[in-house]
Amino acid sequence: MSSIVSVSNLTKVFSTKDGDFEALKGIDLDVEEGDIYGIIGMSGAGKSTLVRCFNFLERPTGGHVVVEGRDLAELSDKELREQRSRIGMIFQNFNLLMQKNVMDNVCFPLTTRGVKKSEARKRAKELLKTVGLEDKAKSYPAQLSGGQKQRVAIARALATNPRILLCDEATSALDPQTTASILELLKRINKEMGITIIVITHQMSVVREICNRVAIIESGRLVENGTVERVFTHPKSRAARKLIIGGVEELDSPDANRIIEELHEEKKIRIVFSENSSYEPVISNMIMTIGSPVNILRADTKSVNGTAKGEMILGLPSSVEAQDRIIDYLKEHNLEVEEVTGDVE
């Protein structure tokens, strides 16, 4: 497997009236062919700027972006446009041409590349079938729902047979059900057409649902990356723990805040169940064996790449000896255990 997108020491500085603003501070990142690569971070972290550097919609101030073996900075305008047509992109607000119907929207990238109208229409029909909108060819975007608009945008992005699809917060404006169906479609596109997908999002659930690799961006820096499974089970950075334990959406609710406040008060551990251990009553066995109560502060099951992962945060008794015994017991039973420090907020 080779890197299809390779970014090294990427920096981007915006000059504003109030001085320079460093949006990206030296990012290194490799996306392998066939990946669904998640780039996650809070709003303002720089992830949208980063993804725009992948097709030079935003020209980086420093560093290199190599796509399919070509350094984008070395391409002429014409070569760059040609390269861009091999990188599809979809957006949060869909960005469809409002005055053109669905068919003409999907044909647009083809006709601008000089493809004959009849051929473009044929290809567009196939694509509309792929995204399940063959009956909407003559509708205008204003007549479609958000999910349908994003499907049209996906069809349009795939028209030129790109090898890479960039998704900039593609599901952020959609309801959970529609989000799920769009993610399903992206997964299918990745599997069936072998298109590498790069997903920019602030929703951990999106990454969990479809990505195999993830990079976490905070204040213009890449703070952690790796397989989704690894980052999910053993988050190293503060930003990763925040995203995983809270989940940004959930963090906003007062309930979650209260729980996290409680978490600050006592010694607590986070355990992750793999598939097998979910069937065993580990916690109750542990309590009976050790004879000391634990406080279950939070428990959840999440699907990571199709495998069920249980996650639990336990508040431990204050006795250090009991704490050690509990941790040893859990480790013996092949659970992943780590101490949760106060900085989850």
Partner: peptide, 23 residues
């Protein structure tokens, strides 16, 4: 005209002339 639509056209490899005339 929504700047997002212009950005989308650029991402598809449209030239400035094409963007002026068709977008």
């Amino acid at each position: 005209v929504d700047s997002g639509v212009i950005e989308a056209a650029q991402s598809m490899g449209a030239s400035n002339w094409q963007i002026i005339l068709h977008v």
